[in-house]
Every structure is written in structure tokens, then in C-alpha cells.
Design a protein around this nucleic acid. Structure first.
Lengths: 199, 199, 199, 199
DNA sequence: AATGAATGAGCGTTCATTCAT
DNA sequence: CATGAATGAACGCTCATTCAT
């Protein structure tokens, strides 16, 4: 026997944001205080949700960590792209990477690089998180490579790749060391050196 | 029921070095597995001492952490000094920094930079550990400065300081990124760039 | 923001039997893994239904447990009846009880007696489940009594009752002990002894 | 350098019983309410100890379970041995097994057989607990075998083994079924049948 | 000086159940 | 009728630290 059923719903679209709220809360806490130092209890009380609700959205703390990394990288890449491409073509667009970092450093929530921080906390065996971090760093390197390609002339492909890698290393150092020393001198020094190596 | 027990010990103080044994054990574990992931129980069972013995030598886990940082930095500085000064005077002694790192990277226990790892794990408010890390990094920078002073000519004091800082930044990047990517390309790239900026 | 949603379903009622599907899924899981070790989530995901659907058919997990017990006993009784009455009249029909058990034991899903398993898991105070189990065991004893009545001569009512009880005890032992020891020797021994006490 | 150390202790001998207190408390609860229904929190609050204290004596709940099984079996075997061997030599000593059970049944804490209860609750894969249970049951069977050997004449070894197995099966049935039905009829019936099969 | 026993607080996770839609 | 979202309570277990001896 077949029956025709008609459902009419007045569906209140609002639940959608819970997963995102958890990610943003966790990101704030993981980034500021560290992954291991941040407990699930802190995340749920800051998010204002129940524990089981969190676990209906994420299967484990590690799972939240992956979302945290993706969230940070995505927003960061979006922001730095907008910032750099707003500068004049050529060398300025590359140097802008460090200017972006300078303003990022001034932010009260600046806590260095989430990738390096996270990779520092996880056991060596944790391939899942490690792979995600490596993947994202490679995306970042690729973006720098594209930026170099767009803005530097008179270099062959291999030279461009080398330049991109060097800019990447300088950027990474600038982030980590400005956080470690609590000072922007590493950013300025990296910027100067970067300026030097760009034709 | 109470019992009177009398113990008579011939206790050999010489061979003990209990404090040092704790530090070395903790260093191994903190460096390999992370500060938060290493429990007090793991340290005492690996050290073969009792829990209360540990707490008679260190007032807290944080206290052990400070000793761990000092121990790692001290031995590291000793080793890299010996390595670099064994090279011919001039540019080679500076470049040797990265060669030292290349062999360090090959070590099965290589886990990046203990300072960056530790600073990544502690909450922002922990000034004690943070200060120690900054202090030690400044000692390292000073050592590089001295090495530059000894091996580079035709630069004034300010230029030497700048060069030292840049070598430091490249070194830090090389350590952190080779660990993150599980590859030595960052060390090689940093070395090349370092070679380029030394007259 | 509110949205008006209209669903139109051609819902095939015939093949559903949702309640029965839940019972059969739960039975499989309860019997194999135990009542307490089987979670509601496991039941719904294996059944392919939503949580609230389950709770619209059963008011609690305990309620499902009662249905599970009834389902197992019903199907078991049907099967053993068919098996035994297919044998020649007389002693063979009684001995067949243990032959049925021997083939039941060979089944990969054999996990002993669901009644004993369940009564082992619930607190003493749970009268509801306990009463159901006792009721069903009494139905089983009655069936054996009827079988004795049909197949044994030269015994008065009281003697028949005693014989039925003894066969029941031997059967129960055979089920529980073959499961416990992971061997069919208890079934064979019980069968032999049963054979001995039937005239 | 060697040093002579003299310790003088007034040592208060009383801590010894904690492990045993945990086992006895857990035994009471596991046996009465079931293994899965008894939480660690219940055990510690009934024992009046801290959670970490429990976990310094046992590495897991499963570990406590093993001790529980051993404790129950040990005390049970001791008691039933004393009871049976106090009877006149011959058949009475064997029949006494069921008389022991009759008084055991009257105990307000009687909850059937701990082995069957426990094996009913654990996943099939749990070889550790299952093996322990089988081992203990085999010890019990061996004891019955020895008792048969001591008290029955005119049987060869094989016949004695068969008799022991049958008594065992009847005993097991008597325990489980008297608990399930909440009545001593299974014990009496098993005793009668046992009496019948002993020469 | 050195210890094993003991602790309270917290960990990450799962439970059976309910509710708004 | 059927659902996905959400929950409070409890789970088994580990933490860094302190205590009596």
C-alpha cells in the first residue's frame, strides 16, 4: 500500500551556525592557549553548548583541531591575498607580505603560527594532523610562488621557485620569532632581507 | 598497630646525580613527545626514582621545564661551538651553522627547536618560561654575533649585528621548517641564502 | 529567518515494519554484544532510522529489551517445536531437544541463553524484565512438560512434571556451559544423562 | 663519597588492606548489580577512597573484574570444601554440594553464579576475562572430580570423570536457575537427580 | 634523603532521552 | 509520521601534587 504524505514545515533556519561557532571558539582558545592546554570543557562553556552537542558535530578533539587549522588557514589566506594584491604590481606586492604580518603582529590576539604551534604539541605519530599542516603550508608556498610569478620578471621557473621558498622561510621565521621575542624586529629584519633578494 | 623500623643505609652519594638524571630523562621525553604530553609518572618511571624524590629536587613540573630548556641550550651551544670553530676561519665558520643543523636533522631524535616547541605549548601568561626562552635565544644570537665578529671583515658594528640577526632568522626557519615538512630542503635553502648574504 | 518547506512523499507503508526492524536489529546486537554494551545509537544506525523514530515506537531501552526477549523466545520455541516434532514419537522427540541445541551451538552467532545473559546484566530490583524472563522460561518448561506428556508412558502426572523439570535443568546447563566453555561437551553430556533418565 | 644514613620509623601498619577493601566492595557491587551497571564512581564512594587511589592499585576496571572473579572463586571453593568434607564419607559428601547451595541460596546476597553473570556481560573478544572464568570452572570441575574419586567406589577413571561432569552440570543449573526463578526448586531437583546417578 | 600511598580536579568521551520543527 | 539537534549526567581514566612515614 502506498500513501501520499505531504509535510508542511515552517522551518526556522538558525541551527546552521553551531558547528561554525564551535570552530571559532576552539580556534580562539587553541591559538591563544595551545591545543593541549585547552580542554573540551572550556570550549563548550565558551560556546555555550552542551558537551554532547559538540560531539554530535565533531567526532573527537582531534577532529576539531583539523577544522581549527583549516579555518585559520582559510581566513588567513583570504586576508593576505586581498592585502597584497591591493598593492602596486611588482616588488611591492611581495614586500607587502611582511607589512601584512606587521599589522597582524599588532593584533592583541597574535600568537605566532598556528601550524608550528600545533605541530609542536602533537605526538610524532599523529600523521593526520601533521599531513594537514604540511598540506596547508604547501598551499601557502604555492600562493607565494604564484605571487612571485606575477610580480617578478627576468627569472626562469627554477629561480622563481627558489625565490618563493626563500620568501616563505623568511616569512615563517618572522612569524615565529616575533611571537617568541614579543617584538617586531624579526619581521622588519626579514622584510629587509626579502627586499634585498628581490630583483 | 604501630611498628618501630630502623633502616641503616650505606648510601653512595657520588654516583647519584639524581637531579641530573631527572633533567636528562625529562629532556628526552619533553623534546620527543612534548611538554604537556609528558606526564610526571613517565618521568619518574623512566628515571627509576620515586615521585616524592622528584618533588624534593624540583618544586613543580614547570621547574623541570626550565631546567630542560637550560640543559638543551647548554649542550647545544657547546656542540655547535665546537663544530663551527673546527672549520677554517672566515665564511666557512658561519656556513657551518647550517651544516651542523644538517647532521642534527639526520638524528632520529630530531624534533625541531625545543624553544619554539615549548613556547607553543604554554599559555601566553606564563612569563617565567617565556622569559627563559627569550633569554636563551638572545644568548644564541650573541654567539652568532661573536662568530660574525670573528669571521667577517669590512663591516661596521651595526652591519655585523644585522648580519647576525639575519643568520639567526634563517637558522630558526631552517630548524622549524625542516621539522614541520620532514625534509631538509629548508636547511639547504637557508644555507644557500646565508651564503649569499655573507660577503 | 523562517522558511516554508513543503515535502511530498510517496511513502511505501507496506515494506516498513519499522517496529519489527528495530526489534530484530536490537535482538542481534543485544544477543551478540550484551544489553548494556549495546547503545541506542548502534541500534538506530544499524536499523537506518532516526533516534526519535525509535522513541516513538518504544518508550525506553528497557522496553526494547522486553520485545527482544519476546522475539527471541517466540522464534526459538517455534523452531525447536518444528525440529522435535519432526522426529519419531517417543524418546527421540525428547532427546531431539539436545540435538537442536547442538546445531544451534554450531551457529556462528550462538551466544548462550538470552534470558540468563539478560538477567545477569540487570540489577536485582528490575522486576519488569525479571518477571518477563521467568514467564518465558515457564512457557518453555510447560512446552517440555507437554512434550513429555506426549512421548512418555507409564508415568503419573507428578512424575512427568519431575522429568520435565529435569530435562529443563539439563537443557539450561547445556546452553550456558557450552557457551561458557566454548565447547559442546556440556551438550553431549547433558544429552547422555537425559537419555538415561527417560524410560 | 659514602654516607651512613639511619632511618628511624614509627610505621603505622594499616594501609595494607586497601586493595582488599576495593576488591570486596567491587565484588559486592559487581555480583549484586552486574559488571557493566557498576561504575567506578560507585566502587570508590562505597570504598571511601579517591579515584586515583583505586587506579594506583588496579590498572583498569577489567583488572578489578579479574580480582573479583578470583576472590569469589577462592572464598567459595574454601567454603564448599569445608562444608562437604565435614560430612560422612561416601555419597553424603557429594550430595552435600547441593545442600551447601541451598544455604547459599538463602543468603540475602545470593545472585547466582558470578562466572556466568560476568561472561554474559563481556564482549566475545574479551579473552582475558573469558579465559579466567574457564580456568576457574575447570578448577571447580577438578575439585568435584577429586571428591568423586574420594567417595565413589566401583567406577573406573572414565566413569568417574563422567559422573563429575554431570554433577557439575547439575550444580551449575541449580545455581543459575534458582537465581533466575527466585526459587530453590532447581536446587532440590538437581540434588534429587544427582542422588539418583550416584551409585 | 627518600619513599609509596593517597588525593581532588580534570580529562576526552558516550549514555539514554527529549524537544522543536 | 518522522526527524536532526540538543541535552545533563555519567562513563572510565589520568593529571600534577602532597602526605605520613
Amino acid at each position: 500500500m502506498s500513501v501520499l504524505l505531504v509535510f508542511v514545515y515552517i522551518y526556522n533556519v538558525k541551527h546552521t551556525g553551531i558547528r561554525q561557532r564551535i570552530i571559532e571558539t576552539a580556534s580562539l582558545l587553541f591559538y591563544r592557549n595551545g591545543y593541549n592546554s585547552t580542554g573540551i570543557n572550556e570550549i563548550i562553556s565558551e560556546s555555550g553548548i552542551a558537551k554532547a552537542t559538540l560531539y554530535s558535530h565533531f567526532k573527537s578533539k582531534e577532529d576539531i583541531c583539523l577544522s581549527y587549522l583549516q579555518f585559520k588557514n582559510t581566513t588567513f589566506l583570504e586576508d593576505i591575498k586581498v592585502f597584497c594584491t591591493s598593492k602596486p604590481k611588482g616588488k611591492p606586492q611581495l614586500i607587502a607580505i611582511f607589512d601584512f604580518l606587521l599589522s597582524f603582529f599588532k593584533d592583541k590576539d597574535f600568537s605566532g603560527c598556528w601550524c608550528i604551534k600545533t605541530v609542536s604539541e602533537i605526538p610524532k605519530e599523529n600523521v593526520k594532523i601533521r599531513a594537514e599542516i604540511q598540506r596547508q603550508k604547501n598551499v601557502f608556498i604555492q600562493w607565494i610562488t604564484d605571487l612571485v610569478d606575477d610580480n617578478v620578471k627576468d627569472l626562469n621557473t627554477s629561480q622563481k621557485k627558489t625565490l618563493a621558498n626563500r620568501i616563505y622561510l623568511l616569512y615563517e621565521s618572522a612569524v615565529a620569532e616575533s611571537y617568541l621575542h614579543g617584538s617586531d624586529w624579526p619581521i622588519k629584519e626579514a622584510k629587509d632581507l626579502c627586499s634585498l633578494i628581490i630583483k
